[in-house]
Nucleic acid binder design. Structure first.
Lengths: 129, 129
DNA sequence: ACTTTTCTACGAAAATCTTCGTATCATTAC
DNA sequence: GTAATGATACGAAGATTTTCGTAGAAAAGT
Protein backbone atom coordinates (compact mmCIF):
# COMPACT_ATOMS: atom_id res chain seq x y z
CA UNK A 1 0.00 0.00 0.00
CA UNK A 2 2.84 2.39 0.71
CA UNK A 3 3.61 3.70 -2.75
CA UNK A 4 7.26 4.52 -2.28
CA UNK A 5 9.16 6.68 0.12
CA UNK A 6 11.85 8.35 -1.92
CA UNK A 7 15.09 8.05 0.05
CA UNK A 8 17.49 10.83 0.81
CA UNK A 9 20.12 10.92 -1.95
CA UNK A 10 23.67 9.97 -1.07
CA UNK A 11 26.56 12.32 -1.78
CA UNK A 12 27.28 10.74 -5.14
CA UNK A 13 23.65 10.70 -6.09
CA UNK A 14 23.39 14.36 -5.25
CA UNK A 15 26.21 15.12 -7.66
CA UNK A 16 24.19 13.55 -10.43
CA UNK A 17 21.03 15.36 -9.40
CA UNK A 18 22.91 18.64 -9.50
CA UNK A 19 23.85 18.01 -13.10
CA UNK A 20 20.28 17.20 -14.03
CA UNK A 21 18.90 20.26 -12.28
CA UNK A 22 21.46 22.46 -13.99
CA UNK A 23 21.28 21.03 -17.49
CA UNK A 24 17.83 19.51 -17.54
CA UNK A 25 16.95 16.01 -18.69
CA UNK A 26 20.04 14.28 -19.99
CA UNK A 27 21.47 11.03 -21.23
CA UNK A 28 24.01 9.09 -19.22
CA UNK A 29 26.67 10.27 -21.59
CA UNK A 30 25.82 13.90 -21.00
CA UNK A 31 25.83 13.45 -17.26
CA UNK A 32 29.11 11.59 -17.38
CA UNK A 33 30.71 14.38 -19.38
CA UNK A 34 29.31 17.09 -17.16
CA UNK A 35 30.66 15.21 -14.18
CA UNK A 36 34.06 14.57 -15.65
CA UNK A 37 35.53 17.64 -14.06
CA UNK A 38 37.46 15.97 -11.33
CA UNK A 39 35.23 13.08 -10.40
CA UNK A 40 36.68 10.67 -12.92
CA UNK A 41 34.19 7.89 -12.65
CA UNK A 42 33.86 5.37 -15.41
CA UNK A 43 30.97 5.66 -17.80
CA UNK A 44 29.35 2.45 -16.65
CA UNK A 45 29.65 3.57 -13.06
CA UNK A 46 27.52 6.60 -13.80
CA UNK A 47 25.15 4.43 -15.81
CA UNK A 48 24.70 2.00 -12.95
CA UNK A 49 24.22 4.78 -10.44
CA UNK A 50 21.53 6.34 -12.56
CA UNK A 51 19.81 3.01 -13.10
CA UNK A 52 19.70 2.43 -9.39
CA UNK A 53 18.53 5.96 -8.76
CA UNK A 54 15.64 5.23 -11.11
CA UNK A 55 14.74 2.14 -9.14
CA UNK A 56 14.80 4.20 -5.96
CA UNK A 57 12.51 6.79 -7.49
CA UNK A 58 15.10 9.55 -7.47
CA UNK A 59 15.18 9.75 -11.26
CA UNK A 60 12.71 9.20 -14.03
CA UNK A 61 13.68 7.55 -17.24
CA UNK A 62 12.35 7.96 -20.73
CA UNK A 63 13.18 4.80 -22.65
CA UNK A 64 11.58 5.77 -25.90
CA UNK A 65 14.86 6.82 -27.42
CA UNK A 66 17.84 4.54 -27.76
CA UNK A 67 19.89 6.58 -25.37
CA UNK A 68 17.54 6.78 -22.42
CA UNK A 69 16.82 10.22 -21.09
CA UNK A 70 16.89 10.73 -17.36
CA UNK A 71 15.48 13.55 -15.28
CA UNK A 72 15.29 14.30 -11.58
CA UNK A 73 12.03 13.18 -10.03
CA UNK A 74 12.04 15.89 -7.39
CA UNK A 75 12.93 19.47 -8.10
CA UNK A 76 15.94 21.08 -6.53
CA UNK A 77 14.09 23.07 -3.92
CA UNK A 78 12.13 20.10 -2.72
CA UNK A 79 15.32 18.13 -2.27
CA UNK A 80 17.01 21.03 -0.57
CA UNK A 81 14.15 21.20 1.89
CA UNK A 82 14.36 17.46 2.44
CA UNK A 83 18.08 17.57 3.17
CA UNK A 84 17.70 20.65 5.31
CA UNK A 85 14.92 19.19 7.36
CA UNK A 86 16.93 16.06 7.83
CA UNK A 87 20.00 17.88 9.02
CA UNK A 88 17.85 20.09 11.17
CA UNK A 89 16.48 17.11 13.03
CA UNK A 90 19.66 15.09 13.21
CA UNK A 91 22.10 17.82 14.21
CA UNK A 92 20.16 20.83 15.41
CA UNK A 93 17.33 19.31 17.44
CA UNK A 94 14.95 20.90 15.00
CA UNK A 95 15.97 24.45 15.82
CA UNK A 96 15.98 26.41 12.59
CA UNK A 97 17.45 29.45 14.21
CA UNK A 98 20.49 27.56 15.48
CA UNK A 99 21.02 26.23 12.01
CA UNK A 100 20.75 29.63 10.45
CA UNK A 101 23.21 30.99 12.95
CA UNK A 102 25.76 28.36 12.04
CA UNK A 103 25.17 28.86 8.36
CA UNK A 104 25.79 32.54 8.59
CA UNK A 105 28.72 32.07 10.92
CA UNK A 106 30.48 29.40 8.92
CA UNK A 107 30.25 31.12 5.58
CA UNK A 108 30.60 34.77 5.05
CA UNK A 109 27.48 35.78 3.28
CA UNK A 110 27.72 38.75 1.00
CA UNK A 111 25.90 41.94 1.83
CA UNK A 112 23.54 41.07 -0.96
CA UNK A 113 22.76 37.76 0.61
CA UNK A 114 22.28 39.34 4.00
CA UNK A 115 19.85 41.77 2.45
CA UNK A 116 17.95 38.92 0.85
CA UNK A 117 17.67 37.16 4.14
CA UNK A 118 16.56 40.30 5.89
CA UNK A 119 13.90 40.69 3.26
CA UNK A 120 12.70 37.15 3.87
CA UNK A 121 12.59 37.76 7.58
CA UNK A 122 10.35 40.74 7.03
CA UNK A 123 7.98 38.67 4.96
CA UNK A 124 7.86 35.88 7.49
CA UNK A 125 7.29 38.21 10.36
CA UNK A 126 4.53 39.88 8.47
CA UNK A 127 2.59 36.71 7.83
CA UNK A 128 3.18 35.09 11.18
CA UNK A 129 0.15 36.80 12.68
CA UNK B 1 52.39 13.78 7.45
CA UNK B 2 48.73 14.58 7.24
CA UNK B 3 47.75 14.17 10.87
CA UNK B 4 44.16 13.05 10.43
CA UNK B 5 41.22 14.54 8.70
CA UNK B 6 38.27 13.83 10.93
CA UNK B 7 35.49 12.48 8.74
CA UNK B 8 31.95 13.69 8.68
CA UNK B 9 29.94 11.54 11.11
CA UNK B 10 27.33 9.18 9.69
CA UNK B 11 23.72 9.33 10.85
CA UNK B 12 24.25 6.67 13.48
CA UNK B 13 27.46 8.24 14.68
CA UNK B 14 25.70 11.54 15.03
CA UNK B 15 23.14 9.94 17.31
CA UNK B 16 25.94 8.90 19.60
CA UNK B 17 27.59 12.30 19.46
CA UNK B 18 24.29 13.90 20.41
CA UNK B 19 24.18 11.80 23.55
CA UNK B 20 27.72 12.75 24.49
CA UNK B 21 27.13 16.43 23.88
CA UNK B 22 23.98 16.30 25.96
CA UNK B 23 25.23 14.20 28.85
CA UNK B 24 28.94 14.78 28.71
CA UNK B 25 31.64 12.13 28.78
CA UNK B 26 30.05 8.71 29.22
CA UNK B 27 30.66 5.02 29.26
CA UNK B 28 29.31 2.75 26.55
CA UNK B 29 26.69 1.55 28.96
CA UNK B 30 25.47 5.07 29.59
CA UNK B 31 25.31 5.84 25.91
CA UNK B 32 23.52 2.61 25.20
CA UNK B 33 20.92 3.36 27.82
CA UNK B 34 20.46 6.93 26.68
CA UNK B 35 19.97 5.63 23.15
CA UNK B 36 17.59 2.87 24.07
CA UNK B 37 14.59 5.02 23.43
CA UNK B 38 13.53 3.52 20.14
CA UNK B 39 16.87 2.70 18.57
CA UNK B 40 17.13 -0.76 20.06
CA UNK B 41 20.68 -1.57 19.15
CA UNK B 42 22.53 -4.23 21.01
CA UNK B 43 25.07 -3.23 23.58
CA UNK B 44 28.01 -4.55 21.62
CA UNK B 45 26.80 -2.71 18.56
CA UNK B 46 27.08 0.57 20.38
CA UNK B 47 30.43 -0.51 21.78
CA UNK B 48 31.77 -1.34 18.35
CA UNK B 49 30.48 1.90 16.88
CA UNK B 50 32.17 3.91 19.59
CA UNK B 51 35.42 2.00 19.19
CA UNK B 52 35.44 2.74 15.49
CA UNK B 53 34.54 6.34 16.12
CA UNK B 54 37.59 6.55 18.34
CA UNK B 55 39.78 5.20 15.58
CA UNK B 56 38.33 7.75 13.21
CA UNK B 57 39.07 10.54 15.66
CA UNK B 58 35.45 11.38 16.30
CA UNK B 59 35.65 10.35 19.93
CA UNK B 60 38.28 10.38 22.59
CA UNK B 61 38.65 7.56 25.02
CA UNK B 62 39.92 7.53 28.55
CA UNK B 63 41.06 3.99 29.31
CA UNK B 64 42.25 4.60 32.83
CA UNK B 65 39.07 3.29 34.32
CA UNK B 66 37.81 -0.18 33.74
CA UNK B 67 34.74 1.07 31.92
CA UNK B 68 36.33 3.35 29.37
CA UNK B 69 35.00 6.86 29.24
CA UNK B 70 34.28 8.37 25.88
CA UNK B 71 33.83 11.98 24.91
CA UNK B 72 33.24 13.81 21.65
CA UNK B 73 36.44 15.10 20.12
CA UNK B 74 34.74 18.07 18.46
CA UNK B 75 32.20 20.21 20.18
CA UNK B 76 28.67 20.40 18.94
CA UNK B 77 28.96 23.75 17.25
CA UNK B 78 32.07 22.77 15.36
CA UNK B 79 30.32 19.69 14.05
CA UNK B 80 27.23 21.63 13.20
CA UNK B 81 29.34 24.00 11.15
CA UNK B 82 31.05 21.08 9.46
CA UNK B 83 27.76 19.46 8.49
CA UNK B 84 26.32 22.78 7.45
CA UNK B 85 29.27 23.67 5.27
CA UNK B 86 29.11 20.28 3.71
CA UNK B 87 25.45 20.53 2.86
CA UNK B 88 25.98 24.08 1.68
CA UNK B 89 28.52 22.93 -0.87
CA UNK B 90 26.82 19.74 -1.93
CA UNK B 91 23.25 20.97 -2.24
CA UNK B 92 23.27 24.74 -2.31
CA UNK B 93 26.28 25.58 -4.46
CA UNK B 94 27.70 27.38 -1.47
CA UNK B 95 24.92 29.92 -1.27
CA UNK B 96 24.21 30.53 2.38
CA UNK B 97 21.23 32.70 1.66
CA UNK B 98 19.52 30.00 -0.38
CA UNK B 99 20.08 27.62 2.46
CA UNK B 100 18.71 30.00 5.01
CA UNK B 101 15.69 30.56 2.85
CA UNK B 102 14.94 26.86 2.70
CA UNK B 103 15.54 26.45 6.38
CA UNK B 104 13.12 29.18 7.26
CA UNK B 105 10.64 28.04 4.65
CA UNK B 106 10.67 24.38 5.59
CA UNK B 107 10.27 24.90 9.31
CA UNK B 108 8.20 27.54 10.89
CA UNK B 109 10.51 29.44 13.14
CA UNK B 110 8.96 31.08 16.15
CA UNK B 111 8.90 34.84 16.48
CA UNK B 112 11.59 34.47 19.08
CA UNK B 113 13.81 32.63 16.67
CA UNK B 114 13.17 35.17 13.96
CA UNK B 115 14.16 37.90 16.36
CA UNK B 116 17.37 36.05 17.18
CA UNK B 117 18.24 35.74 13.54
CA UNK B 118 17.48 39.38 12.92
CA UNK B 119 19.78 40.23 15.77
CA UNK B 120 22.56 38.17 14.22
CA UNK B 121 22.04 39.84 10.88
CA UNK B 122 22.53 43.20 12.49
CA UNK B 123 25.77 42.07 14.03
CA UNK B 124 27.06 40.63 10.79
CA UNK B 125 26.14 43.69 8.83
CA UNK B 126 27.87 45.84 11.35
CA UNK B 127 31.17 44.00 11.17
CA UNK B 128 31.20 43.43 7.46
CA UNK B 129 32.84 46.76 6.79
C1' DA C 1 26.35 -7.55 -45.36
C1' DC C 2 29.59 -6.70 -41.97
C1' DT C 3 32.33 -4.01 -39.09
C1' DT C 4 32.62 -0.41 -35.88
C1' DT C 5 30.58 2.41 -32.64
C1' DT C 6 27.30 3.44 -29.01
C1' DC C 7 24.31 2.19 -25.97
C1' DT C 8 22.06 -0.78 -21.99
C1' DA C 9 22.03 -4.91 -18.94
C1' DC C 10 24.09 -7.76 -15.79
C1' DG C 11 26.99 -9.53 -12.39
C1' DA C 12 30.26 -9.16 -9.30
C1' DA C 13 34.00 -7.08 -6.52
C1' DA C 14 35.53 -3.45 -3.28
C1' DA C 15 34.56 -0.25 0.33
C1' DT C 16 32.01 1.33 4.01
C1' DC C 17 28.56 1.00 7.59
C1' DT C 18 25.90 -1.59 10.87
C1' DT C 19 24.96 -5.44 13.47
C1' DC C 20 25.91 -8.89 16.83
C1' DG C 21 27.81 -13.45 18.78
C1' DT C 22 31.58 -15.26 21.18
C1' DA C 23 35.80 -15.04 23.68
C1' DT C 24 38.38 -13.06 27.10
C1' DC C 25 39.86 -10.28 30.83
C1' DA C 26 39.10 -7.76 35.24
C1' DT C 27 36.40 -7.11 39.28
C1' DT C 28 33.37 -8.23 42.68
C1' DA C 29 30.72 -11.49 45.64
C1' DC C 30 30.61 -15.42 48.03
C1' DG D 1 39.86 -19.36 45.52
C1' DT D 2 36.04 -19.83 42.74
C1' DA D 3 31.93 -18.33 40.68
C1' DA D 4 29.24 -14.71 38.89
C1' DT D 5 29.19 -10.31 36.87
C1' DG D 6 30.47 -6.56 33.87
C1' DA D 7 33.40 -4.81 30.78
C1' DT D 8 36.37 -4.80 26.28
C1' DA D 9 38.24 -7.15 22.06
C1' DC D 10 37.68 -9.57 18.04
C1' DG D 11 35.85 -11.51 14.03
C1' DA D 12 32.52 -12.07 10.95
C1' DA D 13 28.10 -11.52 8.57
C1' DG D 14 24.60 -8.46 6.39
C1' DA D 15 23.37 -4.18 4.07
C1' DT D 16 24.29 -0.48 1.29
C1' DT D 17 27.08 2.20 -1.75
C1' DT D 18 30.40 2.62 -5.29
C1' DT D 19 33.07 0.78 -8.77
C1' DC D 20 33.82 -1.36 -13.20
C1' DG D 21 34.44 -5.33 -16.66
C1' DT D 22 32.12 -7.96 -19.95
C1' DA D 23 28.38 -9.21 -22.86
C1' DG D 24 25.01 -8.23 -25.96
C1' DA D 25 21.64 -5.32 -28.56
C1' DA D 26 20.89 -1.49 -31.67
C1' DA D 27 22.50 1.93 -34.89
C1' DA D 28 25.55 3.87 -38.06
C1' DG D 29 29.34 3.75 -41.38
C1' DT D 30 31.44 1.58 -45.25
Amino acid sequence: MTPKPIPRPTDTELEILNVLWLNGASTVKQVHEALSGGSQRGYTTVLKLMQIMSEKGLLERDERTRAHIYSAHCDEEHTQRQLMGDLLDRAFSGSASKLVMQALASREASDEELAEIRQLLNELEGESQ
